[in-house]
Nucleic acid binder design. Structure first.
Lengths: 240, 240
DNA sequence: AGGCTCGTTTGATCGGGATCAAATCCGGTC
DNA sequence: GACCGGATTTGATCCCGATCAAACGAGCCT
């Protein structure tokens, strides 16, 4: 349809090559993908795919954060998944896109036409196996989140969310002693956190304030969080 | 571990053969599975797998209904999925079981040791492809349910649930004019419906009573439901 | 600087659904 | 038949989180 927006992908300098699906391919196989893929930049707020559209693209996240959004018509919306670097998106063998994908930050993608990608999967069972395992992992995560959405209180949701984000921020090979203070930036606004947790902006804000007042966390800036007492946070996340 | 509880599976007289994963295999391939599988009966209320246990089994549902349960410690529990005849369960390539599986009714399963089943998948890409598509479909369904759990009102949840169950009951190749009255039995108690929809028994009961009083449905028995006005039900399911 | 927009915080009120409690219905068994 | 246990229904009350509303703060553009 549209002409290439940027240069052809060059797997050699791919930042997520070892963690993405492509990590299963050897150099020869990689060349097939290389010919197929294109790098593409999307600005924060820009949609990558719309629910209901024919699913013609899939690909990997190279950088940035994206959201998978369910939610019809009226204002109500629910973020049903977040996509981070090295994550795969799209629906090989699926008919139409089920959830709108929107960039939360400026992001860089490595996109493939679906049909071509499916042919690669046909020829590379190892890659299809990895995709199956990833899909199963996403299913597990979605089901766990169903429990959170349906049964946890606002306090539990926020505490659990902060722990999740801390774990994600922490595994960048970083720094501090486990249990010690950890500071990081949330990739989401309060409103987006609310959309993930199935609550309102106001309630998210109030719960964060409450944790701050309790000394469990600090909020150095609107996007920044410091975990000051991970144990207390974990207790909050489980409490009935 | 345990000796065979029943006779070896005989795919030839399998009630769900054409709809289950095995449908992708030809007669020769089926013999490999046949040697591996065992039929097994479970009574209502009996658990098939426990969350946290090593995942050593997988298989197909032959008859009956089972629930996938998430939910820790305290009383709170959430049904994160229902399994019907021809559905596949278990986690090939997964480490440990994530969700407890419990039979809601007496049920019949066709079970395989995980390791053996994985070998079959290795050799039969068509079957692995089907498993990938099913897993992706389950993921879609779980994400859609996240929206329901997080954002829908009690009235919307119950109306939508009845429509889902009606669709499932209706596609048995049956009977009535679309839009006409349809009567069927729910495979779930009020309490289990509540566990699926993330609400309480009392609220489920009240919503059903309300729909009955409005003439939208009838409740001939505790388990039976008659859809009298599918359009009105659909309107309820979508209303803000 | 001013004025703008957008995100965040805080306050006041309201209501839907949870919770507590009790009555009713039904399918068993003796 | 009488009894019993579990599911369901119905009622009364309470509380958490949504909603409505307004103030606050921080970039950003002119």
């Amino acid at each position: 349809m549209t002409p290439p927006l940027t240069c052809t992908a060059i797997c050699a300098d791919c930042a997520v090559r070892d963690r993405a699906l492509c990590g299963s391919l050897d150099d020869r196989e990689l060349r097939a993908l290389n010919a197929l893929g294109q790098r593409r930049r999307v600005a924060a707020g820009q949609a990558v795919a719309w629910a209901g559209d024919e699913a013609i693209l899939c690909g990997n996240i190279l950088s940035g954060t994206l959201k998978l959004v369910a939610g019809p018509a009226d204002g109500r919306e629910q973020i049903v998944g977040l996509l981070y670097p090295a994550d795969f998106f799209g629906q090989p063998f699926g008919g139409q896109t089920d959830f709108t994908i929107v960039a939360l930050s400026d992001a860089e993608l490595c996109v493939f036409p679906r049909a071509g990608f499916e042919r690669v999967l046909d020829d590379h069972p190892r890659m299809e196996r990895l995709l199956l395992e990833r899909t199963a992992a996403s299913l597990r995560e979605a089901r766990r989140q169903m429990l959170v959405l349906a049964r946890q209180s606002a306090a539990e949701k926020v505490a659990g969310f902060l722990l999740d984000m801390a774990a994600r921020a922490g595994d960048g090979g970083c720094c501090a002693v486990p249990g010690g203070p950890l500071t990081f930036d949330l990739p989401l606004t309060r409103g987006q956190i609310a959309d993930v947790l199935g609550m309102t902006i106001e309630t998210v804000s109030r719960q964060l304030t409450r944790l701050k007042n309790a000394g469990t966390i600090a909020l150095p800036g609107p996007r920044a969080v410091t975990i000051r007492d991970a144990a207390a946070l974990a207790a909050r996340a489980e409490a009935a």
